[in-house]
Design a protein around this nucleic acid. Sequence first.
DNA 1: TATTGACTTAAAGTACGCTTTAAGAAGTAC
DNA 2: GTACTTCTTAAAGCGTACTTTAAGTCAATA
Lengths: 121, 121
Amino acid sequence: MHMTIGEFSKLTGISCSALRYYEEKGLIRVGRDGGNRREYSEKDTEWIKFLQKLKNTGMNLGDMKGYSDLRYEGETTVSERLELLEKHRAYVDGQTAKWREYSQNLNAKIELYREMLRRQK
Amino acid sequence: MHMTIGEFSKLTGISCSALRYYEEKGLIRVGRDGGNRREYSEKDTEWIKFLQKLKNTGMNLGDMKGYSDLRYEGETTVSERLELLEKHRAYVDGQTAKWREYSQNLNAKIELYREMLRRQK
DNA sequence: TATTGACTTAAAGTACGCTTTAAGAAGTAC
DNA sequence: GTACTTCTTAAAGCGTACTTTAAGTCAATA
C-alpha cells in the first residue's frame, strides 16, 4: 500500500530530489514511517500526476501551491479551485494565441527571405 | 548618425545592461569611439528589433547567436538563415499545438469540477 | 556483526537571462 | 578646473525549478 520515495519516483517518473523539493514547497504532504522515511500512497500518485499536468500547462510552483492548499482543505474549496483553474485557462488561451501570432510573424519573415533568394538567382 | 548606449537603450527600450550582455554573447557587434564608448548605428536598431522578435518567439540566446553569426557573414548565408527560421517555425508551431492541447485538457478538468459542483447542490 | 543500499537533512551548485554593484575613466557644463 | 553625468569593466547577485554534494541514519542481507 505504501511506497518509499524511490518506488514512488520510479512510478511517477519524477526524481527523488524533485519530490522532496515539492514537499518542501508544500505541493504535496507526505507522512513518515517509524524510521522517518517518506511514505507515499496510491492517492499521492493521482495528485502528483495532476500537479504534473498543471506544471505542463505553464503553471508555476507558487500557483500550484495555492491550488494544493485549497485541495488539502477539502471538498468545501472545490469552487475556489474551479476559479483558479478558470483563471489558468485564460492564461493558457493567451499563450495559445501568442504562439499562433508568432508563427504568423515568422511565416511573413520567411516569405521575405524566400523572395530575396528568388531575386538572387 | 551614431548613438551612445544610453541613447540606443532609450530608442529600443532595451536596458543598457542587456545591450552589453547581448554584445558579450555575440548577438550584436558594436564599434567604439575614441573614448572606448560603444557606438550604435541606425542599422543596429533594425537588427536588435529583429533579435527581439526572435526572442519573443521563444528562441534562446544560443540559437540567436548562431543566426547572428550567419548574418554577420553576409548575403551568402541567406539560405542557411532561412533554414534556421524554418526550423524555428516548426518549434513555434509545436508550441502552438501544445498550448491548444493544454487548453482542451483544462477545459475537460473544469467541466469535471462543474459537474461535481452541480451534484453537490 | 559488518557491509550494503536506500534513505535523511541542509547547503551549495546549475542554467538562463539578465540586473546590480563597485570602482574607475572620460566627456560636458559652468 | 571642478563638479556632474555617462560611460567602462569585472564580478557578484537574482529568480525559478530543480540537482548535486556531504555527512549521517536506518533496515536488510551475508
